[in-house]
Amino acid sequence: VTTYKLVINGKTLKGETTTKAVDAETSEKAFKQYANDNGVDGVWTYDDATKTFTVTEMV
């Protein structure tokens, strides 16, 4: 189990959250659901070296 981080650069929501998951794909699903639940829709990137997802909304 690995800890993954999500950085949110939204128009109205900014911040970070973490989750523990067995792999990046599992954490990505959880993070995308979290973003969707909070009305964040944007461009996703992933940095495997830091286990960090970033979602950026276009303004």
Rank of each mutant, 00 (worst) to 15 (best):
T50Y: 04
T50I: 06
Y34T: 02
E28V: 07
G39S: 06
K11R: 13
A24I: 12
E25V: 12
W44M: 03
Y4C: 04
T17N: 05
K14E: 05
I8R: 00
G39M: 06
V1D: 10
T2W: 13
G39L: 05
F31W: 02
V7Q: 05
A30I: 15
T56N: 08
M58D: 12
V40Y: 06
N36F: 15
G39H: 09
E28F: 15
E57C: 06
K32A: 04
L6H: 01
S27V: 14
G42E: 01
A49I: 10
D23W: 03
N9M: 13
T56P: 00
N36M: 15
T3L: 13
D23Y: 04
E57F: 07
M58N: 11
Y34C: 05
D41W: 13
T3Q: 10
K20E: 14
K11M: 12
V7T: 05
F53S: 00
V55G: 00
A49W: 08
A35N: 03
G10I: 12
T45W: 06
D48L: 06
A30C: 14
K20S: 11
T18K: 06
D48R: 07
K5G: 02
Q33D: 07
F31H: 00
N38M: 15
T56Q: 06
K11L: 15
Y46Q: 01
V59L: 12
V43F: 10
G15Q: 12
N38L: 15
T19D: 05
D37F: 08
V59T: 13
A35S: 04
V7Y: 08
I8C: 06
N38R: 14
V55T: 02
E28T: 04
T2K: 11
T45N: 07
T3M: 11
D23H: 04
N38A: 12
K14Q: 11
D47H: 05
A21E: 04
D48C: 07
S27M: 06
A24Q: 13
K32I: 07
D47Y: 03
L6I: 03
T19V: 15
A21Q: 08
D47C: 09
L6E: 02
E57N: 05
F31T: 01
D41C: 13
F53I: 02
V59G: 13
T19R: 07
T17M: 15
G10A: 08
E16A: 08
T54M: 07
F31P: 00
V40A: 03
T19Y: 15
G15S: 13
D37I: 10
D47G: 01
M58K: 11
E28G: 09
T17I: 15
D41N: 13
A35G: 02
A21H: 04
V7F: 07
T52A: 03
F31V: 01
V43I: 12
K32G: 02
A49S: 12
D37N: 09
D47S: 05
V22I: 13
L6K: 02
A49R: 11
T52L: 03
K29H: 08
G42V: 02
K20C: 14
G39W: 04
T45R: 06
K11H: 12
E57I: 09
W44E: 00
Y46A: 00
N36Y: 15
G10Y: 06
V40T: 03
K20Q: 14
T17C: 15
T52K: 02
F53M: 01
K32F: 05
E57Q: 09
K5Q: 04
A35E: 00
W44Q: 00
V43N: 07
T2R: 10
T56I: 07
L6G: 02
N9L: 14
T19A: 09
E16M: 12
T2Y: 14
I8A: 02
G15D: 09
T26P: 01
G10E: 02
N38T: 06
T52G: 00
V55D: 00
T26E: 12
A21V: 03
T52E: 03
V22A: 12
F31L: 04
A21L: 03
T50E: 05
E25K: 12
G10V: 12
Q33P: 00
Y46I: 00
Y4W: 08
E57G: 05
V22T: 12
I8K: 00
K51R: 10
W44V: 01
D41V: 14
D23P: 01
M58Y: 14
Y46W: 03
N36W: 14
G39E: 06
T54G: 02
T17G: 04
M58L: 13
K14G: 05
T18S: 11
M58S: 11
V1A: 10
T56F: 08
D47L: 04
T2D: 09
K51S: 05
T17L: 15
T54E: 04
N9Y: 13
V59Q: 12
K32T: 04
G42H: 01
Y46S: 01
Y4R: 02
V43C: 10
D48T: 08
D23I: 03
K20G: 06
K11F: 13
G39A: 06
K32N: 03
L6W: 03
G39N: 10
E25G: 09
V40G: 01
E16N: 08
V40K: 02
K5D: 02
D47E: 06
T54A: 04
